[in-house]
Design a protein around this nucleic acid. Sequence first.
DNA 1: CTGCAGGGGTAAA
DNA 2: TTTACCCCTGCA
Length: 289
Amino acid sequence: MEQEYIIKNVNSFELKDIFDCGQCFRWNEEQDGSYTGVFKGNVLNVRKDGKDVYFKGICIDDIKKIVENYFDLNRDYEKIKNELSLIDENMKISTKYGKGIRILNQDLWETIISFIISANNNIPRIKGIIERLSQKYGNEINWNGKIYYTFPTAKQLEKASVQDFRNLGLGFRDIRLFETTKMILEKQINLNNLYKEKDTKVVRDELLKLSGVGPKVADCILLFSDLKRFDVFPIDVWVRRVMNELYIKNDDETKVSKKQIEKLANEKFGNIQGLAQQYLFYWRREFIG
DNA sequence: CTGCAGGGGTAAA
DNA sequence: TTTACCCCTGCA
């Protein structure tokens, strides 16, 4: 049955910033400007009115608990933005632009699969693939006269073949998804153990063993899933571009090495480099274009 | 209309 | 270090 939850007078919470900053693929804007999404077995609609946020939907647990966890509400993003703003003018501008960003605590398994699909791909297509995958293998949830589909579990994907994935439009990523699903089902990689490990580098090396998971995808998983590591710096074409333009200033962007960017991110942003990356990425991509 | 580059990279050569 | 890979879109 439907539940509701309201937060009054919020800071650092803008729907567009949260859902369009590239961290998630299953939230869609409604006619009225609210967003509806499916995550961890829940269907939720989020609407913002002034400084108040209204959540309603079908939840598998207490909606307050679910919202607080998923939207990372117990973290002080104002403080983080202030800290980043002190670094330099670039960070002051980019944190101001993405002032409503929150890094979601997304389901680890879903994040792994979603970012394997994201490799060398564009957002509309990624979203389409994930939607079709959910429709075919996930569970139905009925709400407001509409049917939503949960993201399939590893177990639910067990019966799918490489060709099944290809037919859903995964392209060359079909085999990666197939192999990674198998590795996780067979516990070659035990996802639950990743939460117990303190050292981010150790977790990263584990993730890199999965098929279709390279450095960039691994860092996205670490940052955007409920592993929630901020000491990573996912480098894609946009991050390379913005880091070169702001700091490195090499005439040929393609000549800028990942090592060089990583070193710089470490020095400048330290253990909150993941957050810095997200503000810079979003600002460069959405604002400058 | 056809052709082609490029897109939130990875793995294999 | 370089290259192919699926599929969709935008543009020449």
